[in-house]
Write a protein that binds this DNA or RNA. Structure first.
Length: 857
DNA sequence: TGTTTTAGTATTTTT
DNA sequence: TACTAAAACA
């Protein structure tokens, strides 16, 4: 075996000396199967990295014998980093990766055995959906009734369960032959048949296109290991220690993959005296997880994997880590209380030595805007009065759609933030177009990508031209690319179309020649494609301001390629495309030791595995969180509760829980009841800054004399600021990853009455606890006349008395925070006037004049 | 074929 | 509301 000179040997004491008893036991355990039940914040990453180091230094294993699997790329990178610190540069050569990228690696090497050719494409869900749509349409399926997404969802379920298309076909449509032309589905009553047929055809087309989808990465690897003993043998011999993080989120296919890789069922027994995994027998498996943090069941994660671990792996050992090093006792008490409402779980109680800490702060807002404003003002206060850095604070919510009002509030308050999630960089049109070119160059058989770019940018090849080529391809049973190459033989093609197609073919040929000549220089290929294809040119010529940012995105894509090229010794185009295919939201997050200086906003799902000193959990309402689609089903509700558990345990020092009495979802304002999770937190743990909203107080009869009548409907809120034009005009909040004009305008509602069966607030008693209460508001609009507004309103009502007319471009001003600046632009919007100021090194800021802490010089 | 208008529909959560 | 996709029009 090769030498591993960079391996730093660690003594036993260095590895376990500073750990608690359970942690140390987990690190040192000798045995074929270990389950570490790691409660939130119990130091599992630490244990995992130490264990790897332990295996190397004390069991005498080689780094190349270790396979460590995490859930996200970020987690993998972090673990590798920690390992490098612990054992030296040799960690760089270990397999520390996600399920998906590990499988890509295996398939790249050995996929030939399955008929996968080099350069195979990886379809993301959008690509897959396109393909399903194409098939369904061809088969005469009513795609309104059976949406591509729902069909794909079903296919994905099959795959996660390792149910193959042959099985489904045999059971429900034995007469169907994938790839047969002109097939029409006639029997819509038998949905299983419909799914089986589309599933089979989908797989057929994927194979034709030399492509795999996301789920296939796992499934096909399992297939590879099962059907090709030589390949299985290679990996079983190679990986002697397999460690899996977030085991509660694995699905059945991933579970089987682990078993296959480890060779658990291979029937080989270890040497009787083995003190380590050695050379024979199954690899040793360590899994780490927390069944209370299983939040991906909707995606096929099977909580039984972790619950049944001890039955699944003979002689398995379980070690529980229950000491929490992250949060205060108050926060843990809340988390424990909430999760204890889930039935059928193994009892577990987190505890901490940190102490009680601050109470949880609660706030009930009248509506989502007010909730956001209150959160923003509290953040500003914590920063100003308690010196808490913005980067120590995070705002979390159930669904991405909730981020809008929060963003607006943060912008108005002038607070820097970063939003994680939303539309991902690699999912944007222009990026997907560019990537489609690259993919088509690398893998010409890839019909989906080739057809995507046929007329992008516009080159006069529309649906007509496409179908001419396509018909020919289907007739001959070849790929779109093949048909294109033989287009001269197509009869009856209009000259104009032929000309266009030839030009396209030549273009692809020339780019492909360039790519072959520069295959190790992805960034140059990207540059070539962007300019030659005309993608860049089309956008540059465009007058649409959005296209300007698209140009920037494309140039960022090129930088990304260049970066990849520099960091990867054996860079290839294919390698680059892989890195783009397997990114997740959380990958956008800055490193833990890098201070972004910004408040972080993200969904609860994205937040898993992270921690912040201050956490705001927003939207705690029935129907928002727990989500309305989960209210009916106990197991889905249990998952929501686990999500709440995850959210609560992200907080280290301070936790805020907020809700809104009225929330608009897709244009409709709805009355919302408080989340049941709020009731599940012991009351004495929460310090309510505002417990009931105005309308609730009114309706329950308390303080009915108050003049808050209609006060929840405040005009000052509903006519929030409108930032027109490109969001890039504002320098607040670099949205890492997402964007494009999402914050167009603040929700301007007037009158939010919804009609329906009215039920009183407070009707918690009954069995069913509906998501939204439909109540008819007595007051249609025109609030704001009353004097006693809620506390939070004040910040929006605030007015510094400045007048936009008093400012001209070039004026000098001072800002409380940014210092001296020069006015670059003014926009007169009356009360919502906006002023743009260049603060030099502090950047150019767009400020809402009436609240901006500025002074004219 | 390309552009504009209109209509319908969608929101969980993502490797 | 906001985005996408079909439909209508140029």
């Amino acid at each position: 075996m090769e030498q591993e000179p960079e391996l730093i040997a660690r003594t036993a004491d260095e590895l376990v000396g500073d750990l608690n008893k359970q942690q140390a036991e987990a690190v040192q355990y000798r045995g074929a199967a270990l389950l570490i039940g790691a409660g939130a914040g119990s130091g599992k990453t630490r244990v995992l990295t130490r264990r790897i180091a332990w295996i190397l230094s004390q069991f005498g294993a080689w780094p190349s014998q270790i396979l460590a699997i995490t859930f996200t790329n970020k987690a993998a990178a972090e673990m590798r980093e920690r390992l490098t610190a612990l054992i030296g540069p040799v960690a760089q050569r270990m397999w520390v990766s996600t399920f998906h990228s590990a499988c890509v690696r295996i398939l790249r090497r050995d996929g030939k055995a399955l008929g996968l050719k080099s350069g195979f494409s990886i379809y993301d869900s959008a690509d897959s959906e396109r393909l399903v749509k194409i098939i369904a349409t061809e088969f005469n399926v009513d795609i309104k009734r059976y949406t591509p997404r729902s069909i794909l969802g079903r296919i994905s379920d099959y795959k996660n369960q390792l149910i193959g298309w042959r099985t489904q076909l045999a059971a429900y449509a034995p007469d169907f032959k994938p790839g047969s032309r002109g097939y029409r589905i006639s029997n819509f009553d038998n949905v299983e048949e419909l799914y089986a047929i589309i599933y089979a055809e989908y797989e057929h087309r994927l194979a034709m296109a030399n492509a795999v989808d996301f789920d296939d990465l796992i499934v096909r690897t399992v297939e590879l290991l099962r059907d090709h003993p030589d390949v299985a043998e290679y990996y079983r011999h190679k990986f002697r220690y397999i460690l899996v993080d977030e085991y509660q989120d694995t699905n059945h296919a991933q579970y089987v993959l682990i078993r296959e890789l480890a060779g658990v069922d291979a029937g080989e027994s270890p040497a009787p005296t083995a003190m380590a995994a050695g050379r024979q027998g199954p690899a040793w498996i360590t899994v780490v997880g927390d069944s209370d943090q299983s939040i991906y069941a909707f995606r096929g994660a099977d909580i039984r994997n972790i619950q049944d671990f001890e039955e699944d792996f003979p002689d398995a050992k379980t070690i529980l880590l229950e000491q929490n090093y992250r949060s205060t006792q108050t926060i843990l008490d809340a988390a424990n209380a909430v999760i204890s409402h889930n039935e059928g779980r193994k009892p577990k109680k987190l505890w901490t030595a940190v102490g009680k800490g601050e109470p949880i702060v609660g706030y009930a807002a009248d509506n989502a805007q007010q909730e956001a404003v209150w959160v923003a003002s509290e953040i500003a206060r914590l920063h100003a009065e308690e010196n808490i850095p913005y980067s120590d604070m995070a705002i979390m919510y159930r669904a991405n759609a909730q981020s809008r009002s929060l963003e607006e509030a943060l912008i108005n308050a002038g607070l820097p933030y970063q939003l994680i999630g939303g539309t991902k960089f690699y999912e944007r049109k222009e990026i997907k177009d560019a990537l489609a070119y690259l993919q088509a160059i690398l893998n010409p058989a890839d019909d989906v990508n080739l057809r995507r770019i046929l007329n992008v940018p516009k080159r006069g090849l529309g649906a007509r031209a496409e179908s001419i080529v396509l018909d020919y391809a289907r007739e001959r049973g070849t790929s779109f690319f093949d048909a294109l190459m033989h287009m001269e033989q197509i009869e009856g093609m209009p000259t104009r179309t032929a000309k266009g197609l030839k030009a396209f073919r030549d273009l692809m040929a020339s780019m492909s020649a360039f790519a072959r000549a520069n295959i190790t220089k992805p960034s140059e290929i990207v540059a070539e494609v962007l300019s030659k294809s005309g993608l860049l040119e089309e956008l540059q010529k465009s007058v649409d301001p959005q296209d300007q940012s698209r140009v920037e995105n494309l140039s960022q894509l090129q930088s990304t390629a260049a970066e990849y090229e520099q960091n990867t010794p054996d860079a290839t185009l294919g390698g680059f495309l892989e890195t783009t295919a397997l990114v997740a939201d959380s990958d956008q997050l800055p490193d833990e030791n890098e201070d972004s200086g910004k408040v972080t906003m993200m969904t609860l799902h994205t937040a898993k595995g992270l921690e912040y000193p201050v956490v705001f959990l927003t939207g705690l309402e029935q129907g928002t969180f727990p989500h309305s689609r989960s209210l009916e089903d106990t197991s889905e509700l249990a998952e929501e509760r686990r999500l709440a558990y995850v959210g609560i345990t992200r907080a280290k020092r301070r936790l805020y829980v907020t809700r809104a009495a009225v929330r608009a979802q897709w244009g409709q304002a709805n009355d919302m009841l408080p989340s049941q999770f709020l009731d599940e937190i012991p009351d004495e743990l929460i310090d309510w800054k505002r417990r009931e909203t105005g309308s609730e107080r009114m309706r329950t009869g308390w303080g009915s004399e108050s003049d808050e009548f209609g006060g929840w409907e405040d005009d000052d809120f509903s006519s929030g600021p409108t930032f027109g034009g490109s969001p890039y005009g504002s320098s607040y909040g670099s949205r890492s990853g997402s964007n494009s004009g999402r914050w167009g305008s603040a929700a301007s509602r007037s009158g939010s009455s919804s009609y329906g069966s009215s039920s009183r607030y407070g009707a918690h008693s009954g069995g069913t606890r509906g998501g939204k209460v439909s109540t008819r508001h007595v007051t249609p609009k025109n609030g704001g006349a009353s004097g006693a507004k809620s506390v939070a309103v004040s910040s929006l009502q605030k007015d510094n008395g400045l007048n936009i007319a008093d400012f001209t471009i070039g004026d000098l001003v001072t800002h409380d925070q940014y210092g001296l600046g020069k006015v670059v632009d003014t926009q007169d919007r009356g009360r919502n006037s906006v002023i743009t100021i260049d603060f030099g090194t502090e950047g150019t800021k767009r400020l809402m004049l009436r609240v901006a802490p500025i002074e004219k010089l």
